[in-house]
Amino acid sequence: MGSRRDRDGEGRARNARPRDGLGRPLPYGAQGVARQPEGIVRSPQQTVGQAQALLAEGKPFHAHEVFEDAWKSGPESERALWRGLAQLAVGLTHAARGNVTGGARLLRRGADAVEEWADGPGERQPYGIDLAGLVAWARELAEAVERGGGPIDARTRAPRLRVP
């Protein structure tokens, strides 16, 4: 007899456990935060706007899911950008959960990816995204997380994605 797995309407495995604002699983039946629907195709401007709103609410895990949709559905030429932004959101998630090592590592990995993308041909501020500011924010936060050693407040430490 196999283990019970949550499935969506098409039979794909999906974890239906409720989650808190940082994406941590809660017990079945607990009141959780609404999850981001998966597989939504948004315009880049919608992606940035929705992710920024989620970051401002202290929900970097949810912002990561929005970036992940863009990464998976966007043009091949932009996948490294969206993946890097998703890594930054996951790094903030881990830092807010108190995972110092994982948070700092993912913040730096995302910063490297975004910086590498920004150094490529074309626009330096795609869709109004402040890539240089995000790189600086991520590296500074990684240092602060390592110095502090404990969880940070995702809402107050959230980045500003767009150029002011």
Rank of each mutant, 00 (worst) to 15 (best):
G9R: 14
L92Q: 13
V135F: 03
V100H: 04
E115D: 15
G98C: 09
L26H: 02
G148T: 01
A132V: 06
P151R: 15
E57F: 01
E68Q: 13
F67G: 11
N15Q: 09
R17D: 12
V48Q: 06
A95L: 01
G74N: 13
R17P: 01
V33C: 07
P37S: 05
A111W: 08
R155G: 00
D20W: 03
L131N: 11
D130K: 02
G32C: 03
G58Q: 04
G103T: 07
R19H: 06
F67S: 12
G23C: 03
V33F: 02
P27D: 15
W117K: 15
R97I: 00
H62F: 07
G74T: 13
G74F: 12
W71M: 08
P164E: 13
R7Y: 02
A154S: 10
D130W: 04
R162W: 06
R79K: 15
G2Y: 04
P75F: 09
A86T: 07
P126I: 02
A34C: 01
V48C: 07
D112V: 05
A132N: 08
P151V: 00
G39Y: 10
P164R: 15
R105K: 14
G128E: 11
A158D: 07
Q87F: 04
A34M: 07
K59H: 06
G29M: 05
G32A: 04
L134P: 09
A16L: 10
R147D: 03
R7D: 01
Q31K: 10
G21F: 02
L131H: 11
R155E: 03
P121H: 13
G58W: 04
N99G: 00
E65R: 12
R79I: 10
L107K: 05
L26Q: 03
R7P: 01
D8A: 02
R139W: 12
W71Q: 14
L161K: 14
A34Q: 14
G2K: 14
T156Y: 01
K72I: 04
T47R: 11
W71C: 12
G39I: 08
P159L: 12
H62Q: 04
E143A: 15
R139G: 11
E78Q: 15
L85P: 15
G103H: 08
V66M: 12
P44D: 09
Y127P: 00
V90N: 11
R35C: 01
A138K: 12
E116F: 05
G9S: 11
L55M: 11
R139T: 10
S43P: 01
L131V: 11
R12W: 13
F61Q: 02
S77W: 03
S3Q: 08
R14H: 08
R160W: 01
G122F: 08
L85I: 09
P18R: 14
A95V: 00
E115T: 02
G91M: 02
R4Y: 06
G149W: 02
P25R: 12
A96P: 04
